[in-house]
């Protein structure tokens, strides 16, 4: 592997008591309320329902929480470097080059009036002194790496001219081209057809293991995360309510996780009414 992996024993990412708050008319509303975890070169799944704060957790690592949102933490460090006190310029060096993010829907996350090739090449050139020809060569390689058959042709297409699955592969190519150490995948397959979901996941999985990257996989799909990730955090109302290895998920303790598991339909049991998740207000304080 490459020289960057020498710090393998130190955690890639340390998060301790992360809070994200937004001012509202009636005071501050906290979207993330004290999340803590550490991440090595592994695949960590963050599962939760809409509004549970899972996406905000991902974005606050990149310091991309939109204003007027406010991020605080006891510690938020990448490779031992404090992200909260890093200068804006230092953050730009880290973004893309060290930490990248794939977002939900390529329809919106790709710039509609730039060719996809240009957008990928640009991601490369932001962090290197490479010329246009070199960047184009690397972009074509990257398109091939995400298993796009005819990279030359796709290179000159506009985002509205490619399918959702291909768009997401382009997005992955764009995010992986500067060779980051950590990839945050924020619901990367939720907007895709079921048939191409697995394809995209396989590509993501292969590239991550090949490059020895860490990954945070944010999703609302418990099954998917359990089969894809090494470790799982379950979030509810801005807090982590459960943290376990994916293989130990069946032994989860928290009633919310148990409720989620119980409400999954199983193929080997007779179909009946799925139980409705009952929510205990006490979980908010847990």
């Amino acid at each position: 592997m490459t020289d960057r992996k020498t710090t393998d024993n130190a955690p890639l990412l340390e998060v301790s008591n992360l809070r994200v708050a937004f001012p509202t008319r009636t005071g501050m509303a906290e979207a993330v309320r004290g999340v803590s975890f550490t991440l090595g070169r592994e695949k960590l799944g963050i599962v939760g329902e809409s509004g549970s704060g899972k996406s905000m957790t991902g974005r606050s690592i990149l310091r991309l929480v939109p204003p007027p949102g406010r991020v605080t933490a006891d510690r938020l460090a990448f490779n031992g470097e404090d992200l909260l006190t890093a200068s804006a310029k230092r953050m730009r060096d880290i973004r893309g080059r060290r930490i990248a993010m794939v977002m939900q829907d390529p329809k919106y996350s790709l710039n509609p009036v730039m060719t996809v090739g240009r957008q990928i090449a640009e991601a490369y050139r932001v962090h290197s002194k490479a010329g246009a020809a070199e960047a184009k060569r690397r972009a074509l390689e990257m398109l091939a790496a995400v298993r796009i058959r005819d990279p030359e042709r796709v290179y000159d297409r506009y985002p509205h001219e490619v399918s959702g699955g291909m768009g997401q592969r382009i997005m992955i190519a764009m995010m992986l081209i500067p060779d980051p150490d950590l990839l945050i995948a924020d619901e990367p397959t939720s907007a895709l057809d079921v048939t191409v979901q697995m394809q995209v996941l396989a590509i993501l999985d292969d590239l991550c293991s090949q490059r020895g990257m860490g990954m945070i996989f944010v999703s609302h799909d418990l099954n998917l995360v359990a089969s894809f990730c090494d470790r799982i955090l379950i979030m509810y109302a801005g807090r982590v309510v459960e943290s376990c290895r994916a293989s130990d998920l069946h032994a989860a303790q928290h009633p919310y996780t148990r409720g989620l598991l119980a409400s999954l339909p199983k193929i080997d049991e007779p179909p009946g009414d799925l139980p409705v998740l009952s929510r205990d207000p006490a979980w908010l304080e847990a």
Binding site: L62, L64, R95, M101, Y108, E122
Partner: peptide
């Protein structure tokens, strides 16, 4: 407000 702006920021652009 668009998501592609976030993408550009994630890339590390100024």
């Amino acid at each position: 407000r668009q998501e592609y702006i976030t993408t550009a920021r994630v890339k590390g652009m100024s």
